[in-house]
Simulated scan of single mutants.
Amino acid sequence: MARFLLVHGASHGAWCWRDVVPALIAHGHAVTAIDLPSHGADPTPAAAIGLQDYIDAILAALPEPALVVAHSMAGVPATGAADRAPDRVQRLVYLCAYRPEDGDSVAGLRRAQAEQPLLPAIRRAPDGVTFRFDPAMAPELFYHDCSTADRAYALDRLVPQAIRPQAEPVTLTGAIASVPRSYILCSEDRAIPPRDQRRMAEPLPSSDVHERPWSHSPFLATPEALASLLADIAAS
């Protein structure tokens, strides 16, 4: 049995793993999915949080060592958490996620992309604290291969995304090098271009890079297949 900690991406919450959690449990694993601060059911005001709060939330959810699965934006704070406590992260799995080096931020990694599919959909709040994704554009960006019901389920639960945690750079000491890491590359992703995922995955061993013809949200579109792949990664 392996222990999994599932960490969602921007504007999402623990709710996005709704179908993956029972599928992993069916494989015999223990699973926890968390809400990062100001996401899901967490009441923290968006104006009160920074990147360190995300990192602290991930570490607080690791009383025992676990495989950490980080989706999209969560790749940056999950890397920061693994660097601070490598003994608590058995393996870090990037699910079409940003994989930072020291000094990188979510916003910086996005801006480094040759293509900017998310930029036209971002609606910044007047106060400059948060942004939202245009609900008319989000389905094609994130959920194009999901069912109509699953699209509606997700769109109803998206929350404003705090800007500061995405803008702040992560500081890495080098301890992350001792943590085994895998990358799940989603070749049909319309949010983080697959070419950029390949670039971020390239430093990892080829045996730890798993390419699948999935969108940005395989936890909704193909949860059983995602759970099966995560179980295989845990077994390896």
Rank of each mutant, 00 (worst) to 15 (best):
I163R: 07
D102Y: 09
A201T: 08
M1K: 14
F219Q: 07
A225Y: 09
S105M: 08
D150N: 08
C186T: 01
Q113I: 06
P193S: 00
F219M: 12
D104N: 14
A114P: 12
P22C: 00
G13C: 02
H216S: 03
T79Q: 09
P180D: 01
V89D: 06
V76Q: 02
C96H: 12
R164D: 06
A30W: 00
A74I: 03
A162D: 05
I192A: 11
H210E: 04
G50V: 14
L118H: 09
F142L: 15
A57I: 13
M73D: 01
E140G: 15
L119E: 14
A138W: 09
M1H: 13
Y98D: 00
R151N: 05
Q116Y: 10
Q113E: 15
D42F: 04
D42T: 02
A231P: 07
E101M: 13
D35N: 10
I25V: 15
G174V: 04
P45Q: 06
A235E: 14
A48H: 09
A97H: 14
P218F: 11
H29Y: 14
H39W: 03
P223I: 02
Y54M: 05
E211M: 07
A30Q: 15
H210N: 09
R151Q: 12
S38M: 10
L220D: 02
A74E: 04
L118C: 03
P77W: 00
Y183A: 02
A60F: 14
S207W: 11
